[in-house]
Design a protein around this nucleic acid. Sequence first.
DNA 1: CTATGATTTGACCATGTGGTCAGAAAATGC
DNA 2: GCATTTTCTGACCACATGGTCAAATCATAG
Lengths: 172, 172
Amino acid sequence: MLDRDGFPAASLEAIAGEAGTTKGTVLYHFGSKQAVYEAVVAGLFDAGTEYMTARILAAEGHRERLHVYIESNLRFIAEHARHVSAVHRIVENSGRRVEDDTAVPGLVRILAAGQKDGEFGDFDPEIVALAIRAVIDGASFHFTANPGLDIDHHIAEAVRLFDRATAKEAVS
Amino acid sequence: MLDRDGFPAASLEAIAGEAGTTKGTVLYHFGSKQAVYEAVVAGLFDAGTEYMTARILAAEGHRERLHVYIESNLRFIAEHARHVSAVHRIVENSGRRVEDDTAVPGLVRILAAGQKDGEFGDFDPEIVALAIRAVIDGASFHFTANPGLDIDHHIAEAVRLFDRATAKEAVS
DNA sequence: CTATGATTTGACCATGTGGTCAGAAAATGC
DNA sequence: GCATTTTCTGACCACATGGTCAAATCATAG
């Protein structure tokens, strides 16, 4: 709904209809439309946290951690593409700042640590982190729009891309 | 307006108020709200085309062309950040598909040509093109949200990033 | 079966929206 | 200065939306 027809089309009645019930029932359970949005956002956030943090923390070494970060993010998104798109729409259209994302600082930390330990090359971690996030966030729309996609290939290529982008310079 | 408060807040009356006139006048000139949106989108599209195509076509060599592509895109966005954000919001919330973007195929062509001529390394041009677009599209939000940004540095780092990502593998 | 409570529903309300329109106000031409 | 055309405005309309509510329905327990 949100991912197909845009934010304005997502009326309570339309949402209820898609869920096989009525506006009144939705309001009875959630109290307000805003609460529905918050439940959708919180639900995805929790699921995502549970899915990813364990895997990322288990990774050994900075490069491995970066791989797992990108891979688990994209895989989670692939498995919840429509939900993720919906959350994007909600967040963007709620007047909230998208930028107080806690994800970028976390990534910056991974990258900077890897540089300090000599595993990564020389680059601005902030910019690279932003780029990785941009690719990850963009993926949900791409995945929703192209159902018959080779997800594994897509993920593998994305990982390879940022592998090269963060590699140590060849010693000339 | 659109970039700050989200799509739903952008009523005709609010738009008119920000422009120092009234709803009636706006409707008199544009005919409908949809037409206002289309004018905003078309205006940006034209400006962008004019700004970029000349520069990109003037570039010699595939790598140079890729540099110019990324650089001119980001520079244009930096100079029109709010306008670009607004267009993003309009497009996303109009039920239109974001994916029939003509930009990705163009980029794929540049990348594939560069590979064929041996200037670029081995990667899936589609995925890399998508990544470049994601970074470029994400930039408008980042630029709007962080006014005091070192744009030149940001652009230079982004160019460097994809330079590495498309480089020929070091001959081991 | 019945009584109590939770759930569901559709009618209803207040509000905000895009759009229309008749007339005021400006601009333009003579 | 006047006539005509363009531009502007605010009142108004139809409609959709979020939310309320009383009544209907359903569960559950005794």
